[in-house]
């Protein structure tokens, strides 16, 4: 049994979510005694592709084509589906990033495969093939049984640990065929949120809400975030009134995140806010109202005025950083 992993790259570089997907796929193959192939679409250096061996990939199928430098769901799905046919893969693993979620469904349809859209763990059973995922915006969990012969697993980033060992993958160049329909849409431009750590990839997120009173008070939030190497986020009303940009808004109607550490400052913890952050591994809440609902969802809480607590926290983090 062979496992195929879509090894996503960003401007030619792999990220942690790629390594998570490969580690996950390699574990699946190990359990079933099968081989592990990664498919790479775009211009990645040979050295980086070989290094995928460290995470468990035995072989890399490298698809290079100038038309594929920007993500295109249909063409990428063609490449992944053809790679999986070539390898007779029974399981296809795709990290459920924005690009991953754009291709997973198309690959599943092409392969007539059942899809687990946002797996959070290894299968709890391989026969029937059963995987757990979140549902109801994190307020529930469900076991999904995939009954088709080929299976697609969309793996939620930050939910499986990266495993490393010695190893080097062999590289094979692969030339799938594409149809005109694959290129009916084209990428015109990408607008990067420059210099900052993207919210969905951040290990630590510092977030603030209406308790901060106004946009002029975000200096301390940004300073704390910078010290921790964190991304910044905010509650919905804060983005709605324009104190912060919309792309920082987390929650039910904003971005869903699952960092290792989420620090919420002056946010009440409304259920719609929690829906976007409840997957965070550790939650710290700073709020001056001891009844704030967020404390119920938190691991650590400080009941106090953000304008006093946050500057102190900044000083303590500075001390900690210089000692470690």
């Amino acid at each position: 049994m062979s496992v195929l992993i879509f090894a996503e790259n960003w401007d030619g570089k792999f990220k942690k979510s790629t390594y998570e997907a490969i580690s996950y796929g390699a574990e699946l193959a190990k359990q079933a005694g099968g081989s592990v192939t990664a498919v790479v679409v775009g211009n990645v250096s040979d050295e980086d592709m070989k290094a995928l061996g460290k995470y468990g990939a035995q072989k890399v199928l490298s698809v290079k084509n100038d038309k594929l430098n920007a993500m295109n769901p249909s063409a990428y799905a063609s490449a992944i589906a053809q790679a999986s046919q070539k390898e007779s893969a029974k399981i296809i693993v795709i990290s459920y990033t924005y690009s991953g979620r754009s291709v997973a469904g198309r690959v599943a349809v092409r392969m007539k495969a059942g899809l687990v859209a946002g797996a959070t763990a290894l299968p709890s059973s391989t026969s029937p093939f059963t995987i757990r995922k979140k549902c109801f915006s994190g307020k529930g969990l469900t076991d999904v049984v995939v009954s088709s012969d080929v299976k697609v697993v969309g793996l939620t980033p930050n939910s499986y640990k990266v495993n490393t060992a010695d190893g080097s993958a062999s590289i094979e160049s692969f030339t799938p065929t594409f149809s005109d329909a694959d290129f009916a849409s084209t990428s015109k431009e990408t607008k990067k949120t420059s210099g900052k750590i993207p919210l969905t990839e951040a290990d630590i997120v510092v977030s603030a809400g209406r308790g901060l009173k106004g946009p002029e008070n975000w200096g301390m939030v940004e300073q704390l975030a910078e010290l921790l190497g964190a991304a910044t986020a905010c509650s919905k009303p804060v983005a709605d009134v324009g104190w912060r940009p919309h792309h920082e808004h987390v929650g039910q109607t904003g971005i869903t995140i699952g960092p290792n550490l989420y620090i919420a400052i002056g946010i009440s913890g409304a259920i719609q806010h929690l829906a976007g952050v409840s997957s965070s591994k550790v939650i710290v809440v700073i709020n001056n109202d001891k009844e704030a609902p967020f404390f119920k969802a938190a691991n650590y809480g400080i009941c106090g005025d953000a304008f006093e607590v946050v500057p102190k926290l900044i000083e303590e983090v500075k001390k900690f950083k210089s000692a470690h």
């Binding site: 059942g114 059963t130 076991d143 409840s278 400080i302 607590v309 001390k319």
Partner: peptide, 30 residues
């Protein structure tokens, strides 16, 4: 054809008690 189905639902494990830290001892949080 039916390719997949949700066979079981569960609620996420409840978070443990929130540890409250004295606002005058923020170093403890770090």
């Amino acid at each position: 054809d039916l390719l997949s189905s949700s066979v079981l639902f569960d609620s996420p494990a409840a978070k443990g008690e929130c540890k409250m830290i004295d606002p005058n001892n923020v170093g403890e949080l770090v």
